[in-house]
Amino acid sequence: MIEPQVIRQAGEVTERKQGFLSSRLKRDEVLLGYALLVPSFLFIGLVIGYPLVRSLQLSLNRFKLTAGVDSEQFCGLCNFQSLFRDPFLEVYLRNQAIWVLGATFLPILFALVLALLMDRELRGRWFWRSVVLIPWMMPIATTALTWRWIYDRQWGLLNYYLRQVGLISENVGFLTDKFWLWPSILLMAMWMWFPYNYVAILAALQAIPKEMREAARVDGCTAWKEVWYITLPSIRPVLTLLTVLGLIWSMNDFTAIFLLTEGGPGIDSTTLAPLVYKVSFRYYDLGKGAAIGMVLMLISLIFGAIYLQMVKAEEK
């Protein structure tokens, strides 16, 4: 017969042993946890982390390559001051506002209309679905090239059709004319960015319970009322999410405008991201270029914080 005392003691020993073991296990787990992160942080550190820190430093220094490669000198907020005194600041900000709002809301609006139309039993569903994905599949270089060709002053398709309809009497340079410039840029933005929004909105539409709509219809709701009172409120979370994402992406986007107009003519389509490039790589004012980038980053981080809050709220 074994004494209860002994059993208890044995139990304590195992407990103690387990405690020791688990603390060792825990330490191993912590080490392994960090070790597995190392490779990804090597890449991110070199390509994103270091340049980010260096940009922050540059934005606080006066550094113009035209004054020499070793002319870098701390100057506090001088670059930001120079940016806010820039005589063209108003133009850049106006461009940025047109671009960000247009390139965010036009694709969402187009996607919404398309998704509302597609969310039903359709003949040739497969066909409509594949067609919608075309702009998504085109690489942006091809997209820009195609639209440049459509907008071509002499041989462009758009000039021909607008003249046929009588909207214009002679050929227009869509990417050089002050009036047509932004509508042309935003038309391309709408065309190439609606598919992502469309896929997300359609998924949300299909998640609305059928009973809700049927009930509305039984109560004599017209199609318009159904959309306004049932459908739109149900997909509001997705729409807000897409809006914030769109704002962040278009805010930081460089490629679309760079490929279509290079920010021109002059500075007429220069938004902040292409401006960073122009100031640093063409005017060699590295400090000011970095400062503009910093302003851009701060704005997108504010939107980023809003986005994260929304995702968190959604998860709850």
């Binding site: 390509v47 994103i48 940009s55 540059l58 902040l272 640093s280 980053m297 997108s300 980023g304």
Partner: peptide, 21 residues
């Protein structure tokens, strides 16, 4: 958070230091 943050950066900002390094 860091991984998320990288998705919200304006990449033009990184290009010049990256080019130099």
């Amino acid at each position: 958070g860091i991984f998320l943050l990288t998705q919200m950066l304006p990449f033009v900002l990184l290009l010049l230091p990256l080019y130099i390094i």
